[in-house]
Write a protein that binds this DNA or RNA. Structure first.
Lengths: 273, 273
DNA sequence: TCAATAGTGTCTCTCAGACAATATGAG
DNA sequence: CTCATATTGTCTGAGAGACACTATTGA
């Protein structure tokens, strides 16, 4: 039973959240018998200039969680592979174009009450963006923004202008005023743990540096992840331990100080873990 | 539209597979628009007497893949958490009782054509069984058997009586006559890779030894996973590197040779990776 | 020239692996 | 006693971390 576009718009945007939920559940009578499947994408990038990690969030303009910030993602189309869905949704909502090798599966979240609309199961993916593309407004006209991601002690802090979202690594909960939609705080924390664990054996996180980078840039990315001053990571030791993952491709004559060599990631090696 | 039990039985057991599939898809008209969600469980145990790893498989007595061997698992009930489903299904089909801390999520498999019935997405779980409980015939009367699991070179070999299923670790494909149902070969290979990767940092695999074990028993389990003679693993070095995960709880006066000490796993530590 | 940055070299400590020596119990 | 099995100890080489030194460029 297709609904009129007007009705759709009204409930998604204008109605109250409880009105919306009543309407939505009437539209999907089977939602408590058979799950809806969604994909959520954790996209990480890094700006060399500002030495800041970024995480892509969109502001929801529809119920539920209207106005809240959330990970990009959405419903899987009929018989669509999850990876395809992840790539499609990311492009539609943010303009960022991914490929299959960019993304790695993170975790399936399936708590029955994680979505107020009913039974919605999500599979989360993680990707590192090397070249930060301009963000476009998706067809759903959602705002997509790169939030700054910082670790301070046992907290992850996401900021964009005056918005500040804080996640506790120990209790795995959000803290403070601004909250993320759904259980996206848990998804982000899971992504963070994944990055932390694979840093030294499979430093995919360095894909945020794009096709080439210097040792010091890599050190800075590591320091951002760990939430420490990059000078605490010894240049010499870091180089020794990471060189097996790098390939030297040239020398950079730019900037102050002794010119640094330029490296590539040897093999971005699909996520083994 | 509920169907009669007779009709159900006929199509699941007596009809041809193609007849069954036509009927099944008619019963689930939305199967190509909205996915069905299943859980598949990789259960591993170990028999000290025979020094053999075991993997639990059930023989399907219904279409599709009637007669083939498959992982235990099944459809998630309305608004049921996946973990609950995993535990429930395993008990129903095999009589093995798990708890939440026993299981760890493995991967979500979602290739659109992985199930001939239509769009069926599965989340796989991995568990290590310390005490091998007697297998009971589930309500679906499926045969549940512990297959012997051996690694030989780059193959995993599952055997039970005259049944021999061979999986290639490199190509990630089944080889030979006997094949597993669905993409369960891939699920088992994914589980094997997970075990291999977490062996030295989080040896959950040793949960197959139950509440207490000796160093040599742990060595033997490791050797089985690696597919090598256990004497190739130096007792002294192995002990040194693993002792941080063990707690000494006594001495075993039984058997030939110098009595060995008995250990427990320090903290079975939920799967970090 | 100095400050800033990056590359190189050295020393130590730890840990894994190879291997030797010792302890215990069954036969 | 001998053999099988476990434990304990020693030696060495690789790698991580602390730290000192050298090289190159801009101001």
């Amino acid at each position: 039973m297709p609904t009129s576009e007007d009705e759709n718009q009204y409930f998604k945007h204008t109605a109250s959240e409880s009105e919306f939920l009543r309407w939505y559940r009437a539209q999907h009578p089977s939602i408590d018998r058979s799950p809806l499947l969604t994909v959520d994408d954790v996209l990480i990038s890094y700006r060399k200039k500002e030495d800041e990690l970024k995480l892509l969030l969109i502001q929801r303009d529809t119920h539920p969680f209207k106005g809240s910030w959330a990970l990009p993602g959405g419903f899987v189309l009929p018989k669509e592979a999850m990876e395809t869905c992840c790539i499609r949704n990311t492009f539609e909502e943010t303009g960022v174009q991914l490929t299959r090798t960019d993304i790695e599966q993170l975790y399936c979240f399936s708590e029955p009450d994680r979505d107020p609309r009913g039974w919605v199961v999500t599979v989360s993916y993680l990707a590192f963006i090397g070249k930060e593309e301009p963000l476009t407004k998706g067809k759903e006209a959602r705002n997509a923004c790169w939030f700054t991601l910082k670790r301070v002690n046992n907290h992850l802090i996401l900021t964009y202008q005056d918005i500040r979202i804080e996640l506790d690594l120990v209790t795995k909960r959000s803290i403070g005023e601004d909250r993320l939609a759904f259980d996206h705080d848990q998804i982000i924390l899971t992504a963070y743990e994944r990055i932390l664990h694979q840093m030294y054996n499979n430093p995919r996180i360095l894909l945020v540096l794009g096709s080439q980078f210097t040792i010091s840039e890599a050190r800075k990315v590591f320091a951002q992840i760990l939430g420490i001053d990059f000078r605490l990571i010894d240049h010499s030791n870091f180089k020794k331990s990471m060189l097996k993952y790098f390939k030297e491709i040239g020398e950079s004559p730019t900037g102050i100080g002794r010119p640094s060599k330029i490296y590539q990631l040897e093999k971005p090696s699909g996520s083994i873990l």
